[in-house]
């Protein structure tokens, strides 16, 4: 490092200089970061671009009102798959949210230090990285074989298994983030533990919990592997929870491998719709968490 004195002796040189090793390293790293960031964005943007150009072509109301076409038939849609996805995800949410939040309450408030909590937390963390196809196999073995049929219910349970750890861990986090002084205030006012939980801790933690739920829903909605063994597929509208049910993820899986251009087009459109649904839940979760005080 050589300081070049251009002014009067004793005046430090404050100008930019690439000759300085510190400044040089800074510049190189900044440029490198930009290159890598743009590089990372390329596949993301190109996937979206492809979805929009190839799936967008077929976008219209027919997609949501008509049933999937057979073989060489033209036109058609995947209304039953949209409804099926929504039903299965709703079932999964109904099952996983109560258990997830109650589990989070236990981990974050009732007995955070207990051995049971440590074990549960560890297992939940392992399960967040659980291969989703195993959730399908698990429910296939435990529910589908027992019921004797593939069903929306089994699909919902399989997705619930995947959603549960996420909801439980984010609930625990949000409950722990409620400041201790707020809990003190609740007890100081003469709350029992249950009252402190229901009246102060849970309401304060609600935005965080909802964010976790939305993220879990978004993750589950796009999952196809667990549904292969549980909800299977159907070419008809859903009429009960106890029968094979169509879903967007499986429709994409089935149609994309078919030799008919019409079905392949529909698979693209279904991909776009699925991405839009997932995006909607993500946006919703952002809106909810932004409302936090």
């Amino acid at each position: 490092m050589v300081a070049v004195m251009t002014e009067l002796p004793g005046t430090p040189d404050l100008r930019h200089s690439l000759g300085d090793r510190r400044a040089l390293r800074n510049t190189v790293l900044t440029v490198l970061l930009w290159v890598v960031a743009v590089g990372a964005a390329v596949p993301l943007v190109s996937v979206l671009y492809m979805l929009i150009t190839r799936g967008g072509a077929r976008l219209g109301t027919a997609l949501f009102t008509q049933l999937p076409p057979a073989g060489l038939e033209m036109g058609g849609g995947f209304g039953n798959a949209v409804v099926g996805t929504l039903v299965i995800v709703a079932l999964a949410t109904l099952i996983s949210v109560p258990f997830g939040i109650l589990g989070g309450v236990f981990l974050g408030f009732v007995a955070p230090e207990s051995k049971l909590a440590d074990a549960t937390r560890f297992i939940a963390k392992v399960l967040t990285g659980f291969p989703s196809i195993l959730a399908g196999v698990f429910v296939y073995a435990s529910l589908v074989l027992w019921m004797g049929t593939y069903s929306a219910l089994a699909g919902g349970v399989a997705l619930a298994v995947l959603m549960l750890p996420t909801i439980m861990l984010t609930s625990e986090q949000s409950i722990r983030m409620v400041p201790q002084r707020m809990k003190d205030a609740a007890f100081g006012m003469g709350c029992t533990e249950t009252q402190a939980m229901l009246r102060v801790v849970l309401p304060t933690a609600t935005p965080g919990i909802l964010t976790g739920v939305m993220l879990a829903v978004a993750g589950a909605a796009g999952n196809s592997a667990p549904l292969l063994f549980t909800a299977l597929f159907s070419n008809y509208w859903i009429s009960s929870l106890g029968e094979p049910t169509a879903s967007l993820a499986i429709l994409i899986y089935n149609f994309s491998g078919m030799p008919f251009p019409n079905q392949i087009e529909l698979a693209w459109a279904a991909s776009l719709v699925l991405v839009l649904i997932v995006l909607a839940f993500n946006v919703l979760s952002r809106l909810i968490s932004a409302r936090r005080v």
């Binding site: 002084r181 707020m182 003190d184 304060t204």
Partner: peptide, 10 residues
């Protein structure tokens, strides 16, 4: 009880 840090509920 009134605490050291103001602690209104959210």
């Amino acid at each position: 009880m009134v605490f050291q840090q103001p602690n209104p509920f959210s």
